[in-house]
Amino acid sequence: MRRVFVNEEWCLGCHLCEYHCANANMGGVTAQDMVRNLRGKKIHPRIRVEDGADGGKINFAVQCRHCYDPMCVKSCIAGALTVEDGVVTHNPDKCVGCFTCVLTCPYGCVMPDGDGKVVQKCELCLRNKVGAPACAEHCPNRAIVYEERGTL
């Protein structure tokens, strides 16, 4: 299965992925959609760029690994998190907002959504209009890639 991988050697810390992620998950595809969706709003992206050490010269993006044996799915008390064709998927209608998954995810990739009532997580943009990870598609330096790398 193809997954999103981040190579911090090439990450520039431009944070574009966050904005494209937020736009994609608000139903947007184009630059015009982004203006409508994100202008004047605080964004809640599912991928986060951490600006690290060395005066911000080392940056890396953190995103869901879609683990084979995901702790978040195991810990979900409501059955809201499931694995569908390898993609760890979240159903907000079932989510009760207990945030146990937030606690158990070893990568910090499941987070409360903008309203703080339920969680949100990366679903590889497979369920929004973009159809493939927007972060990888728009990474200007190919630091984020969407590819098959065999069994992890």
């Binding site: 520039l12 944070h15 904005y19 630059a31 982004m34």
Partner: peptide, 13 residues
């Protein structure tokens, strides 16, 4: 300014 979403990508780059 009607299009700018203050993402600051320009500033960082």
């Amino acid at each position: 300014n009607d299009k700018c979403i203050r993402c600051q990508v320009c500033e960082r780059q």
